[in-house]
């Protein structure tokens, strides 16, 4: 029985292809963002402006649908970099960056809106955009995965 269920899970080559990737941050100017693919999922890497960071930190965390502070969603000392998986937590569509009322992400499918920290603010999505596992290798380079 188990082999018949287990065979449905990702196979060895798929898992191997899902190994960590490195992203160079140097070419991303302030206010810009890029989309990279990791494990078939789009990852948004945003270089946030001072205004965007302030907006994200000015919110009363307790009032959010999925309370999480902006500090907890970025790496300390690299506050301007936001790295999130660009898949709406509702039903998996790809949100559009720099849209919606919160200057963050807007999902065109069912209207979920995320703020500049990728946190859900309104719409049917239950949770914030997840932060993938990543670390800074140098000041201008991250490893995702």
């Amino acid at each position: 029985m188990w082999p018949f269920i287990s065979q449905m899970n990702p196979d060895a080559s798929t898992i191997a292809a899902g190994a960590p990737i490195e992203v160079d941050l140097a070419p991303i100017a302030e206010g810009q963002d890029i989309k990279v693919f990791w494990r078939g999922k789009p990852i948004f890497v945003s270089h946030r402006t001072k205004k965007q960071i302030d907006e994200a930190r000015a919110v009363n965390v307790a009032s959010l649908p999925d309370p999480q502070s902006d500090q907890a969603r970025v790496k300390e000392g690299h506050d301007q970099w936001l790295v999130v998986i660009g898949i709406c937590t509702h039903l998996g569509c790809i949100p559009i960056a720099h849209e919606g009322q919160y200057d963050g992400f807007f999902c065109p499918c069912h209207g979920s809106q995320y703020d500049t920290s990728g946190r859900i603010r309104s719409g049917p999505a239950p949770t914030n955009l997840p932060v993938p596992p990543y670390q800074f290798i140098s000041d201008t380079k991250i490893q995702i995965g």
């Binding site: 269920i5 449905m8 899970n9 990702p10 999922k41 509702h90 039903l91």
Partner: peptide
């Protein structure tokens, strides 16, 4: 992704349906 709504095991079920980390 509808199946990801199932508590606790939802995400594993979705991976099982996909046979990968996304529809492919």
């Amino acid at each position: 992704n509808l199946f990801s709504a199932i508590p606790y095991v939802g995400d594993s079920i979705v991976t099982l349906l996909w046979g990968g980390y996304s529809v492919g």
